[in-house]
Design a protein around this nucleic acid. Sequence first.
RNA 1: CGGGAUGUAGCGCAGCCUGGUAGCGCACUACACUGGGGGUGUAGUGGUCGUCGGUUCAAAUCCGGCCAUCCCGACCA
Length: 426
Amino acid sequence: MLYSKLLLPTLKEAPQEAEIISHKLMLRAGMIRKVASGIYTWLPLGLRVLKKIENIVREEMDSSGAQEIFMPMVHPKELWEETKRWEKMGPELLRIKDRHERDFCLGPTHEEVITDIIRNNVKSYKELPLNLYQIQTKFRDEVRPRYGIMRGREFLMKDSYSFNIDEDSLQESYLTMRETYKKVLNRIGLKYKISAADSGAIGGDSSEEFHVLADNGEDTIAISDSSEFAINTDLLLKKDENINSLEGKPSPDGNGVIKIKKGIEVGHIFKLGKLYAESMKANVLNSDGKASTLFMGCYGIGISRLVAASIEQNFDEKGIIWPHNIAPFDINIISIGHHKDKKIASAATELYEQLTKMNYSVLLDDRKDGYGTKIKDSELIGIPLNIIIGKNYIENKEVELLARNGQSSKNAINDIKTILDFFKNQ
RNA sequence: CGGGAUGUAGCGCAGCCUGGUAGCGCACUACACUGGGGGUGUAGUGGUCGUCGGUUCAAAUCCGGCCAUCCCGACCA
């Protein structure tokens, strides 16, 4: 991609509407623009990151054996009445009417729709277990949207639903999803904790949250300093206690002492049991030929929120630092004097084509600006590797490699292997 | 929904107290120079001052309603 052709409106200063770092940087880096409170357009750079995360999630879901489907975002009132949620849910459920005055809502989650599909199309325990997922825009009319994409009203989420004949099978599906989420977060390259959680409005038997650790996190979790144990402090606090009183106490799992950490909830997995299946009469015939209520699990991971969470965990005073696997571009070629010196322009273009052919995603900064402007933008948008072509090329066919983490070296321009080794070792 | 605040050019801000018809920095356009850390000069573009109403000879400025946005709380991937 040529920088000069890319819609990438970077800002030197953050708009005053932004408070936290990820929101400021996403605006400054030209990733998103606000349309209304909690509702955003994703610009090309932001969308690239969003798609990278989406694809990682999709690949891991597919390899876990789940199947992708796509459900509507507009749901008829009748389905939501079956589970009593039409009444139970407050104004966060955005209700609308069609031209015939029929009631609908924008789907904040999809238990009703998926359960309806399953009860109508699955008849025997032999067809189970099933795990179906979708990647879709959800709408929740939050009381107070905030922090940009982090708590928007419209957001991109992967939600999946498992259907099982019994509790043991549900447990298996649940653990498979738990492993899948670990793989997703490991691939993205984020530090996280899995903590026991309150199952909240969605209900059900038990649930765990996946928290990306970041100082700006909205959730507070208590972790053990010497084991994997973690728990949302909401579940640990007695009514008169404050969070600080937990610090240093013995960990509930018996290993070490409690440390308090801030986290961003990016995933939540639930064992729902028969909760929705019962009210919606979702049954299959079991091996005895008798109707048997399904056991369900549901598993959500916030794709758009992961973009913000990744920034909250990885940034510096210069801008965003993307983990390699979700960076919008792998490499930025900074061509200095691109419009003045044909030798530099053609060397930069040749390198660009060569790397692109090798399946790297490459940005070529061919703008008429000076080095300062180009490197500042590159650091703001967080490209892992800069290859700088300028006077060193003219003098002795060398380029400078400058990684986003600060490491640098000089290399012969035709020594692609060493350049790529430098990239991979970051 | 309770508490707090803000709204003037794409972004950051000044002007408002003390009314006289809008300004600064950045960005943007043209040209020239510059070209390895947001460079320099010259000349420009861009605003019904959130909105509606009131007061006044005159309103960005004073008064009132509304709207939007943000922050803190109660709720959530």
